[in-house]
Amino acid sequence: MSHMPTVAIVDDDEAVREALGDLLMVSGLACECFEGAAEFLAARRVRQFDCLVTDIRMPGMSGIDLIERLRDERAGLPVIVLSSVLDEATRSHALAIGARAWLTKPVTDEHLLGALAQAIASSGSSSKR
């Protein structure tokens, strides 16, 4: 049985987390929300995620730090950045270190869900290989 893909959402803003969680739910995706990178990393030790949607500017560990950490761990987890950071250097850096997509807040559901579908599909194909 194909398991329902689970998406992790990391954002320090509760309103954003709740909104994203509801969108994914109505779109038939399971999701779990974390208010910071540290909480997500802790959960990852015990649970499997198919995709990560993360903000960049957060107190404590930033989104960039998180992506670097996952790259260093060779986690193979597709990461989508959803941020309001407009800095081109940060964007290129994030993509260079392995982020699949860089979406800017506010984002349309089509964009987000499209990016998620692509990311999950690619991660599925890579895991089959």
Binding site: A15, A19, K105, P106
Partner: peptide, 8 residues
Amino acid sequence: QPLAAIMT
């Protein structure tokens, strides 16, 4: 942040 929440 609030705009993103509103749109979603």
